[in-house]
Write a protein that binds this DNA or RNA. Structure first.
Length: 414
RNA sequence: GGAGGGAUGACCGAGUGGCCGAAGGUGCUCGCCUGCUAAGCGAGUAGGGGGUGUUAAACCUCCUCGAGGGUUCAAAUCCCUCUCCCUCCGCCA
């Protein structure tokens, strides 16, 4: 990453993510200074080592003098090392704030500047009830007690909704198994280290719940654990691509969203999600990105939901993503498209932090793998869309593909 | 929660202050030998950072023996902290 300091294109790609040029300048300057100092320190260390080595061969007459000499070099070395570690620490701190550069195919701009790639399906008018009202009427969504026990943005799913929830999970997992994904139920509490390596900290720290007493963090997505599956490993090329599907509850503080989506369960602190994660050869990551997207489109298509695909603009990308597609589904009660899934190519951003590499061909250096992730099924939110699109005269019709898993075809308001 | 034991290269395993980036073995690669197979013989075989170099080769240098810190002229080896694994006891299932 720092090796790409000389490529002006990279710099531009980073600046498109709304990073101040001053930060980049400072990092580059620090880097220059760091390397110079490192050279100097290494030379001193080499001399010191040589002096120290001379001691072992010397007989007792010379010994005292040689030790004194080595000792002196040691003093100088230590002084220089202090300077080096200071500059290293500062460099690291700043360098960690530099996001993954945006891909060339990513549009400029912010939240509203995403490029709509395609639109699939019709946009029906609002149903009689929005998903919250309908969910309550069906006895699917219970918030009163949940708010009392846990606070705003928490809810219980009840009755048939629970079976629909697990039907979605089961169905999605089976689809992914057919696509070659290895299913994983990972831990949802992780150490800080895991958050950093997966690329969430420091940037998204305020979105994460912390369990202070044990210094653990509740994951916002199973991606964190899936990423760590090959941490520190050098994979033989034959093991790639490696694809995993994770199921877990996800916890998000949703800081900074006060007043948004306060009705129903569109935006809650806790939800279940089936996630896809791929480790691939660097040359394969663009193709894999399209592949993950096509799986998402297939799943949403099978559920019969109308959607559009958006290529997210540079300023709206997270730190780790070089490129991201969101699939937004039409939410009839609001008369607009709302995000259901997203799918990112991190390239080697988190692979560097995780130290996950592929072995190079004979004589070639090992390379960092590329990692990608995408939502297969955000269960709660999928239910939201289904509650609006499958509302027929006060009756909820179970999407056809889920019926084998639920064992019932519809639910009537009681 | 209490008491011990451990973590070394792809793997097994030696190594209690300098000659250790690391014996030996297995595996793997290359070569030889053999009519195929097995056996045998010889050689090679860690990763990462920085630098010189037009790419590559090559070379220089530093770091890495679970992680981090300390002692020392010198640490795989001594001290401290942490993580993980194993055994025993307790506890809960």
């Amino acid at each position: 990453m720092r090796a790409l300091r000389d490529d002006p294109a990279i710099r531009l790609a980073i600046e498109r993510k709304r990073v101040s040029p001053e930060l980049i300048d400072e990092v580059l300057a620090l880097d220059r200074g760091h390397r110079d100092l490192q050279q100097a320190v290494e030379q001193m260390r080499a001399r010191q080592k040589a002096a120290s080595k001379a001691v072992s061969g010397a007989d007792s007459d010379d010994r005292a003098g040689l030790v004194a000499q080595a000792s002196e070099l040691k003093q100088e070395l230590q002084a220089a090392e202090v300077g080096l570690s200071e500059i290293t620490a500062r460099l690291n701190e700043l360098a960690f704030q530099i996001p993954n550069p945006a891909d060339a195919s990513v549009p400029d701009g912010g939240e509203d500047d995403g490029e709509v790639l395609r639109i699939v399906g019709d946009t029906p008018p609002p149903p009689p009830m929005d998903h919250g009202q309908f969910g309550s009427a069906l006895g699917f969504i219970e918030t009163d007690h949940a708010v009392g026990a846990s606070g705003a943005r928490f809810a219980s799913l009840m009755r048939e909704a629970v079976f629909i929830e697990f039907a979605l999970v089961q169905w999605a997992l089976q689809q992914l198994r057919d696509e070659g994904f290895v299913a994983v139920v990972p831990p949802t509490l992780v150490r800080e280290e895991a958050m950093v390596e997966a690329g969430f900290f420091p940037t998204d720290r305020n979105q994460v719940y912390a369990v202070e007493a044990d210094e653990l963090f509740l994951v916002g997505t199973s991606e964190v654990l899936l990423a760590s599956l090959h941490r520190g490993e050098r994979l033989p090329p034959s093991q790639l691509p490696a694809r995993y599907s994770g199921v877990s509850s996800c916890f998000r503080r949703e800081a900074g969203t006060y007043g948004k989506d306060t009705t129903g369960i569109f935006r809650v602190h806790q939800f279940d999600k089936v996630e896809m994660f791929s480790f691939v050869e660097p040359s394969e990551s663009d193709a894999e990105h399209e592949r993950l997207l096509s799986i998402q489109e297939k799943l949403i298509g099978l559920l019969g939901l109308p959607y559009r695909v958006v290529n997210i603009a540079a300023g709206d990308l997270g730190a780790a993503a070089a490129k991201k597609y969101d699939i937004e589904v039409w939410l009839p009660s609001e008369g607009r498209y709302r995000e259901l899934t997203s799918c990112s190519n991190y390239r080697d951003f988190s692979a560097r932090r995780l130290d996950t590499r592929v072995e190079g061909a004979k004589g070639q250096a090992n390379q960092f793998v590329h990692t990608l992730n995408g939502t297969a099924c955000a269960v709660g939110r999928t239910l939201v869309f289904c509650l609006e699109h499958y509302q027929r005269d006060g009756e909820f019709i179970v999407p056809e593909v889920l019926v084998p898993f639920t064992g019932f075809e519809s639910v009537t308001v009681r």
